[in-house]
Design a protein around this nucleic acid. Structure first.
Lengths: 362, 362
DNA sequence: TGGAGATTGTCAATTACTTGTCTAAAAAGA
DNA sequence: TCTTTTTAGACAAGTAATTGACAATCTCCA
């Protein structure tokens, strides 16, 4: 808390050498230095022996500048803007609105070079978001209102969960697969089960242990029934986890399975990872999407900071998709970081489907 | 060795010779001394004859410094920071991402060289005394030689983990099952893998995300290969989890699998559950044993209270077994609550085997 | 449409600083 | 005696700063 707070105020004792800054921002040391020399984008302090030392605010500025230039802004023009202005700029851009100073989404050659050596896609993100928002819900697969679910099976599953009866729970899942198929099981049984357990837990009818238990069983079941992976290297990569403090794993399990079904290469990281860790994994895997599940608590004061930090540390061209019942509690932060918030699993799948095939826009 | 021994006696202020510190931190003795001489990173006490003696805090500092330097920070700059600052630093700057030659020409490849260069040097010099030191108790009870491990497979598994390469990791596990059988795989590959990842994590060579990732893959694998359960109701029940604040799941996964192999009905509850929740699950399932894994941190001030609370809430006739590299850090509390602390997986299995058939004593 | 000039990321070379490693000799321990 | 530790000094490789140049675009204008 004080950590992040302090960071936001820029009052920090610890300063970073250029190597660290380079790793965090993804900029080469060359660029960092040249931005300083030509545009005074940042003016780091120095050690006694003339080594640069960057404050956290410097890092933030550079990150924002990276994102803004990626969106087509010219570094020479925005280099001197304040952090606040930059934030606004980036927020505007990630909402899909056109960049004001001419340099339209496709800023042209420089970007191509940049992308070619950085990663396949950047501008895509905005595209997805726009599309996702517009397309919205394509009406549930099975007809009913967003996967009505099979109440009988769900009820049995809930019951099994409350009794720590893994065997029965698995049997129910098996039955669900037979009846609805692998995907249908997720949408019509597991998802409602998650919601139901969540509600019961909130009412104090069951404990977190039950939720953990169900997560485990469902994971095991999914692992057992999922197709053994043999995805081409082309498969886009998605990292699935929950941010620090979010201990409930079930949502993430579901999302991971759904993404796997849709042909994504899923890196599943379990629950409660700090921002830096998540960002590292995303970066390492060049993941096109980060899928977060936020279920409880819905008012963790640290989480917004954590999310901001996450966005700052992540590669700019990776999208963030956030689901879960408590996501709404952080919508301000989520909007700030340009996260997409699908309203339910169907929407999420829709988005994932769209993101599967990056189109080169014209 | 002396470490564990002394811990058992409850003496808190033991101090370690440099060799031990070197083994724990993964730093060479040279580096430890040079960090002291040049930067005063630590200032160990001395014996009457001028030998260095390091406190636990020194060790902690050195570990953190290792991680921070791994993240790109300059030792000369961070050497004097306090433990808290270092923790923050390490948490902020994750080093999970690869350094791509794309953007970071200055930094590119360097790290690989650094590691490739650092690794063999260390093992050559400090050798693999580790086994003697870390294992401490030979424990040869369970038949095998305390799981010597198949270094080749383990190495491949570690490599796959550092690369988030789930497919390869699974292949390795498969090979291990074929070669050693299901149980042998646990003892000879997964367990060493857990230890190795733990050590690398402490050295900052990998991130917590890697550990989470490996846990997930291993879970999935175990779920897939474990016998589908059809245990009679007679099977004794064991609850497996980690106490609140302990986010690392791998140890619990291993233990759960081991217990399952031995014919226990395992209720697996994942990581980081509050005492009340755990106790509730134990009570609800009339579990004969509660298996806890404690890996990190080893100095959570809340954990002892949590453990005491746990014992108070639990049924009296349920045993508590605690394993994990950080268990020693809480040995006082553990003794207080009458927990059993098997030194390694073999011992644990031994105990579980004994507990399978309760004697009704007269 | 074509071209001049500005913009911007990249690179090489040089210099200087940083840091891990190593050797050798003496002391201590076992 | 054989190993381990300590100290001091030397060294090589890694890392960073600076300068100047370069190539690929982008912008603007004729």
């Amino acid at each position: 808390m004080s950590l992040k707070f302090v960071y936001l105020l820029g009052v920090v004792s610890i300063r970073h050498p250029i190597q660290v800054v380079s790793r965090i921002t993804g900029l080469s040391q060359h660029v960092i230095r040249v931005w300083e020399k030509r545009y005074r984008a940042v003016v780091p302090g120095r050690t006694g022996t003339n080594r640069r030392l960057y404050t956290d605010e410097d890092v933030e500025r550079l990150s924002l500048l990276t994102r803004a230039t990626g969106a087509g802004h010219k570094i020479s023009i925005i280099a001197r803007l304040g952090v606040e202005d930059l934030r606004q700029l980036v927020a505007t851009v990630s909402r899909g609105e056109p960049v004001r100073d001419g340099g339209l989404t496709d800023a042209g050659g420089r970007r191509d070079v940049l992308e070619a050596d950085r990663e396949p896609a950047r501008s895509k993100k905005e595209g997805f978001i726009r599309r996702g928002g517009a397309a919205g819900v394509p009406a549930g697969v099975g007809g009913g209102t967003e996967a009505a679910g099979d109440s009988e099976l769900v009820e049995e599953a809930v019951l099994a969960t409350t009794r720590f009866d893994g065997e029965t729970l698995m049997r129910v899942l098996e039955a669900a697969v037979i009846r609805f198929g692998h995907n249908g099981m997720l949408h019509r049984v597991v998802c409602p089960l998650a919601r139901e357990t969540g509600e019961r837990w909130q009412r104090g009818q069951i404990t977190a242990a039950h939720e953990h238990f169900a997560s485990g069983i469902i994971r095991d079941f999914l692992a057992r029934t999922a197709r053994p992976f043999s995805l081409g290297e082309v498969a886009p990569c998605a990292v699935v986890t929950t941010p620090a403090g979010q201990l409930h794993e079930l949502g993430a399990v579901i999302v991971a399975a759904a993404a796997g079904n849709l042909g994504w290469r899923v890196i599943y990281l379990g629950a409660s990872l700090p921002a830096a860790e998540i960002a590292g994994a995303v970066r390492h895997n060049r993941a096109r999407a980060l899928l977060l599940s936020i279920v409880y608590p819905s008012d963790d004061p640290r989480l917004p900071e954590e999310l901001v930090m996450l966005r700052r540390l992540m590669p700019q061209d990776s999208a963030v998709l956030v689901g879960g019942r408590a996501a709404a509690g952080y919508s301000q932060a989520l909007r700030q970081i340009g996260a997409v918030q699908p309203g339910n699993l169907v929407e999420l799948c829709d988005l994932l489907e769209q993101m599967r095939f990056p189109r080169v826009e014209g």
